[in-house]
Write a protein that binds this DNA or RNA. Structure first.
Ligand SMILES: [Mn+2]
Ligand SMILES: [Mn+2]
Ligand SMILES: [Zn+2]
Ligand SMILES: [Zn+2]
Lengths: 139, 139
DNA sequence: CTTGCAAATGCAACTCAGTTGCATTATTAT
DNA sequence: ATAATAATGCAACTGAGTTGCATTTGCAAG
């Protein structure tokens, strides 16, 4: 999955390759972890790309619809976005510096879902698992 | 844990027993599930107790400090509050009607935490687990 | 019961992430 | 080059939650 292929796929679907779109795809490809709208904005400035916040939010919506990124909620009042994951994974969140690390789990809860669904008469579609604590730097 | 004991404990600590405080404790005792500030407000109105939203938020802060309730994040843009839990538990969230059900889990992740902590050099303090799907009514 | 002090309250104005309407600009196909 | 329309910028808005400050209330001491 490289920049050119992704942009070419967008173009083929009839979407335009604007400077914002190209820059935001680069930002996500080069920062493989959850980013807030503000994080994205500062990364764009770093690439000398100045965009209005409305445009950033609209491009986030576009990239979500295209399943290039997904939205995640960490509970700190602002949404984060990360590359659409290849594999199911979860997150470690540092309560001190707010950094986020994606982790794969050996014993995944997907196995438990059937049991929980039956027991509670609730049709589980997905789950979210977050561990809060102190990262290597902060402990 | 009944209303009188809780209020008496607050009074003994030097806190006042205002109509808002008494009514909000009642609301949480009689609605044992996560409530938003708006939910609390409508429950209060139902008890013929009219309060300013600022007062509701300040009373929430008080009840959190007293460990009578805790705050939980469901990812829908507003915080929820529930009775301080006796036992560790998790939540089922209906994506259709937004209802929330608390569930106990047999195989809890607390067992996994040590492994994850060591593997990632991250000191886990707590975790949050939510299942999203359709409740009995909505499926 | 009265009084005084601090705790609790109401109100209006504010914050901040995210959204919306609309006029303007830029990308792409022809 | 041109036309169609996707994308953008801007200003104003939304909605949950917060803050400063003047006023009211609960409660304990006299
Ligand atoms: Mn991740
Ligand atoms: Mn619960
Ligand atoms: Zn950290
Ligand atoms: Zn439902």
């Amino acid at each position: 999955m490289n920049l050119k292929n992704i942009l070419e796929a967008f173009r083929k679907k009839g979407h335009r390759l604007t400077k914002t779109r190209k820059a935001m795809v680069r930002v996500f490809l080069h920062n493989n972890r959850p980013l807030s709208a503000a994080d994205i904005n500062s990364r764009l400035e770093h690439l000398a790309v100045t965009v209005n916040k409305t445009t950033i939010y609209r491009e986030i919506d576009f990239l979500k619809k295209e399943r290039f990124i997904r939205e995640i909620e960490l509970g700190d009042g602002m949404k984060r976005y990360e590359l659409w994951p290849d594999d199911h994974h979860h997150h470690l969140i540092c309560v001190e510096c707010n950094s986020v690390k994606c982790i794969d789990m050996e014993h995944c809860l997907v196995n438990e879902e059937k049991k929980i669904s039956e027991k509670n008469n609730f049709m589980i579609m997905e789950h979210s698992l977050k561990f809060f604590g102190l990262c290597a730097k902060c402990q």
